[in-house]
Design a protein around this nucleic acid. Structure first.
Lengths: 333, 333
DNA sequence: TTGTAAGCGTTATCAG
DNA sequence: CTGATAACGCTTACAA
């Protein structure tokens, strides 16, 4: 199938009239080599089209330079934005991203981690799903770094990056109350991941503190279509909600579209809506959605910084803020 | 920075009481090994947490299993959908995707291809930008396969996948005429890539055949915000267009939002809009955009099939269809 | 600063 | 079917 014929350091050495190790040194940052020798090597390398074999280098150095990104739903705005930020920052740090798609079953996350191990990835970053504990242990035991983004769990060893959502529920409730809303609802998916469920629980609790009940509805995957269905369900209730907190922006946008086009509701006059993520579409004129901004660049920066750092770094947990973004989907006064 | 300590085949061999090569065979599909021996090996491997080192395997087999994806604007709906399809299909074919972000300068595409060569990727798939001819040659010379998606150019060696857009311009003009539109416009970005420019040229030509002039406007990058600016420019003209073909869906959605919210126009009553790509957002209720569907799965399938195929495959060019998707942004009668 | 030589973890070859 | 042995292309002591 493939018969690649790459030029090796040996050939470069011959052409440049130096030893094999001189070639190696020429391509190693901070190696002790005479400028003149390096020039000769580089010249020969350029002429022959030589490129260091990172497979071999990784084998020797015990450091592949590869970082494995484990992701599902990568077509989604939030996920793709995060992938973009991560690949960019990894490249800036001299690493290269390997991308594993884990759509379908959760078992795939384990497969992904296995791939990472096979390629001796320096680290893995898990954006979706939860790897089996035994595999996490295996990674850690093998000295492979592991970053878990938004999977609030109790694994030992890896870096866990989560959002600090202590205040979000409070903010939303306050916003809704100020807007004069009293019939609150929460639109959730059936994904049931910890971070999503925490959002629901927090909102219900915060509302109760103000003496308000929340109508909770859950349906399907976490996306636009589910938002529409959730609107159909919530908006046909006897006590129609006048404010809804949607578990993500995508759900919120679907909700808004159904509310407007199927129920002829006006937003924010008849219904206030808040989402979560601040995907680009949330800012589009048709929606102008009030939401919380995922600190994407900070997440990526934190992940990369940690996996580049020298210290052993025991199990560590990081909490980042998701700032409230005020737009027009909630009445202001 | 990293001191990974993975278990090697040697250790497994010792534990299983067999030779190193037996272990290798146990993990090689179709190798001649006794079932009992394989069982012993697998058992020991499982117990020790052994995983074949693909760096070493790639070195020996001269086939890394890596396919390099070269992409810019990966946060965009179309791009991320294509990445998703490609990673999925590559995995199904037993390959793994390496992702290189080439945002910023075009020179980065060359850097990306260099990375692919360094990791001895079995193939590279370029979704954005144009690599330098010398690098393409280098890849080809080294026996690395190369797929260029939507970069209609004249390189030798690689597989080129393009859309067959011969009929699209015609379809759009016909649709606009049927809707009773006479003042046509084309909203383009300033990216100036061949495929985008071909869209413009084709549309202008098709309109002229019907005796109609097209007002062409170009602005900024190819995205939502540019669409808004383009609307501002086109809709303030003396002869206000009553139909616009936007170079991509993202541009079209921005255009629609500006037309509606800044010029209070009704779509499709005052203005007909057609886009290109059929990103998920085009189907959202707020837009319901008539557009052409990128055959994403077919593109991915074609790319993967070609790079898995055995035949030497001389320079080859593939043209896929982008079906017209009728929605409500164009008056039907 | 340079070259020599050993070794990284595999797989392919070739006897047995 | 199995086990030794020689690659694969590179880095890194070590000695010169």
């Amino acid at each position: 199938m493939s018969d690649k014929i790459f030029v090796s350091a040996e050939e470069v050495a011959r052409k440049a009239g130096v030893s094999r190790s001189a070639v190696s040194r020429a391509f190693t940052a901070g190696a002790s080599i005479a400028p003149e020798t390096r020039r000769k090597v580089m010249e020969a390398a350029e002429a022959l089209g030589y490129h260091v074999n990172h497979l071999a280098r990784g084998l020797m150095r015990n450091e592949s330079g590869i970082v494995c990104l484990v992701v599902s739903d990568m077509g989604t705005p939030y996920r793709s934005a995060l992938i973009k930020a991560l690949t960019q920052q990894l490249q800036n740090a001299g690493k290269i991203a390997m991308l594993v798609n884990t759509d379908r079953s959760d078992e795939r996350v384990d497969m992904a981690l296995r791939q990472a191990i096979r390629y001796r990835a320096d680290a893995s970053i898990v954006l979706s799903g939860m790897p089996d504990k035994s595999l996490v242990d295996l990674c850690v035991r093998n000295g492979q770094r592991l970053v878990l983004i938004n999977r609030n769990d109790e694994h030992q060893g890896p870096l866990r990056i989560n959002l600090d959502e202590d205040d979000t529920a409070q903010s939303v409730v306050t916003a809704f109350l100020r807007a004069g809303c009293r019939r609150l609802a929460f639109a959730n998916s059936e994904a049931g991941t910890p971070s999503l469920m925490a959002r629901e629980v927090g909102f219900v609790a915060a509302a109760r503190e103000q003496g308000l009940d929340v109508t909770v509805e859950r349906f399907g995957p976490t996306g636009y279509e589910s938002g529409k269905v959730l609107a159909q369900r919530l908006m046909t209730r006897r006590e129609r909600p006048d404010a809804v907190f949607c578990v993500t922006d995508l759900v919120a946008l679907g909700f808004m579209d159904a509310a407007r086009h199927q129920f002829s509701l006006s937003i924010p006059d008849d219904l206030c809506v808040v989402g979560f993520d601040d995907i680009p579409q949330a800012a589009w004129n048709s929606y102008d959605l009030t939401t919380f901004a995922q600190p994407i660049e900070e997440i990526a920066a934190a992940a990369v910084a940690w996996l580049m750092s020298d210290d052993v770094g025991q199990s560590q947990s990081l909490r980042l803020n998701a700032p409230f973004v005020w737009r027009r989907s909630v009445r202001s006064a």
